[in-house]
Amino acid sequence: MDISLQNVEYRYSVGTPFEHLAIADVSIDIPSGSYLAIIGHTGSGKSTVLQHLNALLKPTKGTVLIGSREIKAGRKEKNLKGVRKKVGIVFQFPEHQLFEETVEKDICFGPMNFGVSEEEAKRRARAAIFQVGLSEEILEKSPFDLSGGQMRRVAIAGVLAMDPECIVLDEPTAGLDPRGRKEIMDLFYRLHQERGLSTVLVTHSMEDAARYADEIVIMHKGKVRKKGSPKEIFSVPAELLELGLDVPEVVRFQMKLEQTFSTKFEKVCLSQDELTDMVASYLTGRTSL
């Protein structure tokens, strides 16, 4: 399922003294099965864009296409359930939204809300709990007796059980320890590949954007500032730094080396291995001159 934002504008509280333009002229294409990262400061409009991806917000100008469904500014849109079933959003700190008595009930809530039978919902809950790396016993527990990391996984299982075609992740690893972060990011990447899910990642982590995304969109002051592959985006690090954004550690390190050695390497490396290979052969060449 392709998703596409075409010249989307969104204003909060239109017609009140609090009216506020959040995003303007935003065009983003998310082809089926692709992995897109959206980066930008707090307040750059990332979250507003995200909420258009399953019609939680409707554009005040422009069009949003979600599969065959068209959501146009200025039109009453009814029956958006179909759209919301296809696009699952994992919000920041999703564990804050757990509420049921047992993990199983919590995971079943979403699918049953979309008309899935109880039996089928339970089947999906079991499948989802394995997918997020937890064991079956946990289904009978209260979500509030779990550790923070387990709660996060249960909340994610709740989104997976809706069987979405696109999954939207808003800072999914905030607050987790380094191992937890890696496990969660690897989990989403595996699902992305195995299920052919489209994945949209909103993140502050340039490392994650560089490692996982096919395409990166930079949001700045409510507009799309730049789009491109990780190589394209990070090969001009100065541009990002100017916007007050970070670059991946590897890129930053390469910049420092280039400055100190007054040289320019032929390419921008995005992985540590690539970087250390290049630097090692450069240094060896230098001393054997």
């Binding site: 320890d177 380094p178 390190f253 540590q272 630097v279 090692a280």
Partner: peptide, 20 residues
């Protein structure tokens, strides 16, 4: 232990393995 190694330490280690 579920933690990470700081980036400069990782890079020093890899460079050493690559003969620097």
């Amino acid at each position: 232990l579920g933690l990470d190694i700081p980036f400069p330490v990782k890079i020093s280690k890899q460079l050493r393995e690559k003969g620097i």
